[in-house]
Structure formats: C-alpha cells, structure tokens
Amino acid sequence: MSEITEARKNSCDQNDRTSEENVESYGDSDRTRNFSDLAQEVASLDELEAEAIFILREVVAEREKPMLLFSGGKDSLVLLRLAEKAFRPARFPFPLVHVDTGHNFPEVMAFRDERVAELGERLIVSSVEDMIADGRLRDEVGPRASRNRLQTAALLDVIEKNGFDAAIGGARRDEERARAKERVFSFRDSFGAWDPKNQRPEPWALYNSFVRRGEHLRVFPLSNWTELDVWAYIRRENLRLPSIYFAHERRVFQRDGMLYAPTAGTQLLPGEQLETRSVRYRTVGDMTCTGAVASVAFSIDDVIGEIATSRITERGQTRADDRATEAAMEDRKREGYF
C-alpha cells in the first residue's frame, strides 16, 4: 500500500508539472517500451497486418453495403494501406466516408482529397455544416462549444441515407478504457447505439456479422494495434502523413493544460492569449477539441522516439472530449459516436 501511495505522490507531482507546461519528458531510460528487438517488431507488425486484412475481407464478404471511415488521420491512412493489400489490384469494394465537422485542419482536408484522388476511390462527405444549415442540428454555444457530439448525428445520417450496414473505422483498444472493451465486429441497433453490457462474444477470429435492416456494425481492424504499432507500420510502409503530425510553428492558446489552435469561432477566456509554439498533433480530429503537443519531432523516427518515451497517452494529451466525465467515451459511444 505504501508503495502505491508513494507512486501516486510522485506521479501527481510530475503530472501537475507536465500538464501545466504540456511538455513531455523524453529519454527516460526507465521506460522499457522500445523497438530494440527488430525480430519482435517484424513479427508483431506481420501478425497485426495479417489480422487487419483478414478483418477487412471478412466484413466485405459478409455485409452487403460496407463503407470505410477516412478522416485523413494516421489510423485511417493505415487502414487505406491495409485495404490496398486486401483488395488490389481490384478497386476497394466500398466507398470512403468522411464526417466533416467544418472545423477540420485545412492541411488534413487537402491531404484527404489528394490521397483519395491518388487511390482513384470514391469519397462521400457527410457535413455537419449542411445539417446545421438545413436546421437538423444546432451548434453548441459558449466559449467551450464543440462539434464533437454533432459528429455522431452526421455519421448516423450518412449511414441511414446510404443504407450502410457496416462502418469500418481505425479505432484501437489501447486508446481508451471503453474502447478496450469493444468487439472487433461491434453491433449497433437501429439508433446506432452501443450496448456495452450486451456484446456478442467473439472467440477466436469468428466474427458474427448478422444484422437486420436498419442495424449496422462498426468494424475495427486495428483493434489490437497500439499507437506505437501504428507509427512503426507507417515507417515500415513508408506512408505519407499530413504535415501537422510533425513539429511546426503554430499560433496556439492554452486551455485546461492543452494547446489549441484557434478556429473562426474561438472565444478566448480571460487570461488566455495566443502565442507561437513549436507543436505537432498526436491525434487529428475536430479542431475545437483536439490539442497539440509541444514537440520538436520532424521525422517519423523523431515521432517514434517521442511516443516511446511519452508518459501520457495520446487521447489523454490531446482530447478534451474524453475529459468531460469518467465515462465520457462510453457515454458518447452509447449514443452512436465512433
């Protein structure tokens, strides 16, 4: 017991300091997460890749109308590479879908369109702005307004309109404690709701893909990948990424221990001010709830070095939406969030 108390004391001290400055400590020799063992890295990535390709082929073989969610972010870029490996030289047997909150990073949107054109695949965009314009959605108000929740409505809308019965996404179990509990083939009822207490058991790789009309599946080929696996795979496959994943100068302000870039509607609170910092994004989402991290990582190897020694998880460091309550992610997933 005393050991735990001591550990808590230390970590709280460090944590306070870290969140104040939002700077990670690097190069801690105590950390054992690294890729020093090349054979382990190869074995792990081969196995993860094979599993993800298997999952992609299962969902297209068993569902009538699947789609793949593509945001331009690192995890969905990995998904696209896996889809190439699963289906080329044929075209993808599904369209790509992006849920556009209207508050996306312009660099990422440009990258998204470039990548889609390069692949010659079809992209469907579901726009939160359109739904606000035609009165189906209303923006939150106040300085902390976010379009995080509105995303869910736009996602369910595009699923219903197109009659999709499976949405493939890049979520990973290591991201968040509710996601750690989710199935690879995750059932959604006709409201798009997840019922964590009533999930279909998933022994071996025998996925149950049965749905009725109006119900659908969320399918997660990267379930067993960690953040480090994603980066190691990006390195191995030599994947290009949007520039914001690497260190760059940006005007940002500090809020709740995170660094945010202002959007058109940003209202600074008393005491907050814009400053120029060297930052990068560890995750890419809606600008209103995705924070940057102070960083000097200019290459994939630099980024892997930073993550391998990071003492904070990617969502913990960059996502305000998970902090609302103790079960924020679970609550949003119950409503149909990804």
């Binding site: 054992t32 997460r33 020093s36 382990q40 179990r173 290591d174 968040e176 404690r177 509710a178 750690a180 509990k181 964590p196 207490k197 999930q199 379930s223 067993n224 960690t226 103790e326 079960a327 679970e330 609550d331």
Partner: peptide
C-alpha cells in the same frame, strides 16, 4: 481495466478488456 460505468459502480469486471504491454 474496469473501464465501463457499470463495472465501476459494482466493482466487478463485466466484459473482457484487452491490454497491451511490453518488456525488454
């Protein structure tokens, strides 16, 4: 590891949770 609301309320594990870790 007990990440779900109901698990925390009851202090029990309801569903399988997957964790990933590595040593040297």
């Amino acid at each position: 590891t007990d990440g779900l609301r109901a698990e925390r309320e009851q202090g029990i594990t309801i569903d399988v949770a997957y964790r990933y870790f590595r040593t040297a």
